[in-house]
Every structure is written in structure tokens, then in C-alpha cells.
Nucleic acid binder design. Structure first.
Lengths: 153, 153
DNA sequence: GGAGCTATCAGTAAATTTTTCTGAATATGG
DNA sequence: CCATATTCAGAAAAATTTACTGATAGCTCC
């Protein structure tokens, strides 16, 4: 299987919305029996189309109501500096996402915290300890309008 | 159960990394049997600590290798305009996340696409059709350094 | 058009997991 | 110290997963 057919795509669309459906339930939606659905899911996992299965938790109930976005620019852009930055960012447990960007900022971070005070502490004791940061711009989420893990295809 | 004990927190930490573990496997990690773990998971779902279970797919294999970040500012900030914007954004299937921000930009979007050309088309035929957009800044992800759905707690 | 090959599917049965229930042990609070 | 509530282990039933078999359809090359 090098290319996916419509059935494979449908299965992926279903699973990225709800991974707790049984193969039988998926099969019913696709007018198939459980066997082919089971085999296709296994194949999609093995081939790497499905990276993993996760539970999505309620941030607010777990006392992480603050989401901050950080735009970071480095002072120097040697390869070594960039790699070092990447390594150090991965150590910070508050960071959920980090991207190396094209444009006027170098890195983009999404961070989940308990409070604005904790953000202050995060910047003071962790981010600012990282060498070579030039510019740091902070933004805060007022309201989550839309947030999904699915991709459209 | 109004408050979570350490066992509940451990279960949540495990499930947000791997939702395919059996209750038995989780129980072994916690030195318990399957029954209490099963009951706790059910309770955590029911109480809303677990929002849902999803499969995380491989964007690149599904031909969505381009991630763009959009910063949007509105021209006018009446309540009606903001609500309208929110509604219209939710219709755009390319948008995976949208946040209303505090600061010099109003909205933050994360978008997954097939190519840079498709981004051009997305802005031309969809974003620019939304009324009242003042400033639009685009950034592109060069490299995904870190990207998880987990939160630290 | 037909033989041979491949891919996909349905059906079945065993293995595993989920789910429910019961009773024991431990903590809690008057 | 007793009564109550909570949490847990264990067992058994229900459901699902997993592996296997054979049938069918589509495709390719003669």
C-alpha cells in the first residue's frame, strides 16, 4: 500500500476526531465489516499515517488557564546557537509547541501556565536564562475560539 | 470526587501521552489492579477532565507540509464585528487553531496547507473575503522543533 | 477472452480487554 | 469507638481485539 484510497482517508478522518470508536462502529459508518477496518487501521499505524493516540485534557480544570504566545528572535544566528536554543527549549515543561519560523521572528512558542504571575516567573527564571535571545514579544490568549488537533484533507 | 489525588493525576499524565494503554498496563505502572484504574478513568471522563480521545496524524504524509501562523487585527472592534469574525473563521477548514488575543494583534491563527501557493489562494479567496480585517501578518514554520498535545501539571 | 496474481472483504473463533458486581480493607468524622 | 464513605482486589460476564481462512472482484499479461 503506497497510496491511500477513500476508505483509508475516511478512517483517518474518523479516528482523528474520536479514537475511542470500536472497529465495528467505524465499519458500520463505512458499510463494511470489522475485519477490513481492523486491518486498515493496523496498516495506517504501521505506515506512520497515525503517529499516536492521546487523551485531550481540560486545561482549565487542571489549573492551566493561561495560554501565552511568545515570539523570540535570536541575537546571533550561527548554527550552533540555533541548535542550543532548540535543546534548551525542549527542557521547559511549560512549552507545548515550539517552531523555528521564517520571517522577522526566529521562534514561536505556545506556553500553558497557571497564572500571569507564573508567566513572569517563567520568563525571569527560565527563558531569560537562555543565552542569545534578542527580542521577546509576549501575547496572551483572551479566548480560545477554535482549537482542534485535526487536519483537513 | 471534587479534588483529584495523586493517582488521578498520574493516570491523566499517562493517558495524555498514550491513550491506547489498557487499564491493566496503567494499573501495573501504578501498582494497582485494573478495577480502580478503570473506575477512575470513567470518573475523570465524566467529570470533564478528559475532553476526548483522538488519533494524531502525520501531516506530511497526508500532504499538509506547510504550517502558517497568521496574526490578524481588525479595523473596528465592536462586539458584533468580533463575533462575526469568530463565526467566519470557524468555517475555514484549513484553520486548526484560532485565539482572540490581548495585545497589538487581535487574532492568532494556525493553518495547515498543501503548499505556499495554497496559502496564497487561502488568503486571496477566503481570508480576504472576511470583512473588517485591518492588518494581516503571515509567518511560516521552517521546522517543528517541539509539538505536543500534553500539558504539564 | 481467460489464466494467474493480487488486493479486499466477510465470517469465525480464540485471546484479550472492558465492564459490572461483590466483599474486604482503610480511612473519616462525629 | 462506632458508623459511614471511599478505595481497592478479585472474579465473572460482556464486548472487543486479533488472527486466520476462504471467497470475490479487479488487474495484468499473454
Amino acid at each position: 500500500m503506497e497510496i491511500l484510497d477513500q476508505t483509508d482517508l475516511k478512517i483517518l478522518r474518523i479516528l482523528q476526531k474520536n479514537a475511542k470508536l470500536t472497529t465495528k462502529e467505524i465499519a458500520d459508518q463505512l458499510h463494511l465489516t470489522a475485519s477490513p477496518v481492523y486491518e486498515r487501521v493496523r496498516r495506517l499505524e504501521k505506515k506512520g499515517y497515525i503517529k499516536n493516540y492521546v487523551a485531550i485534557l481540560n486545561k482549565k480544570k487542571l489549573n492551566r488557564p493561561v495560554t501565552a504566545i511568545c515570539m523570540v528572535s535570536l541575537r546571533y544566528h550561527n548554527e550552533g546557537f540555533i541548535d542550543t536554543f532548540e535543546h534548551q527549549i525542549k527542557e521547559l515543561i511549560e512549552v507545548q509547541e515550539c517552531y523555528h519560523m521564517a520571517g522577522k521572528v526566529d521562534f514561536f512558542l505556545k506556553i500553558h501556565l497557571e497564572s500571569l504571575e507564573e508567566y513572569h516567573e517563567f520568563v525571569r527564571t527560565k527563558l531569560s536564562k537562555i543565552q542569545n535571545i534578542g527580542v521577546l514579544e509576549s501575547y496572551f490568549v483572551l479566548k480560545e475560539i477554535y482549537n482542534t488537533t485535526t487536519i483537513a484533507f
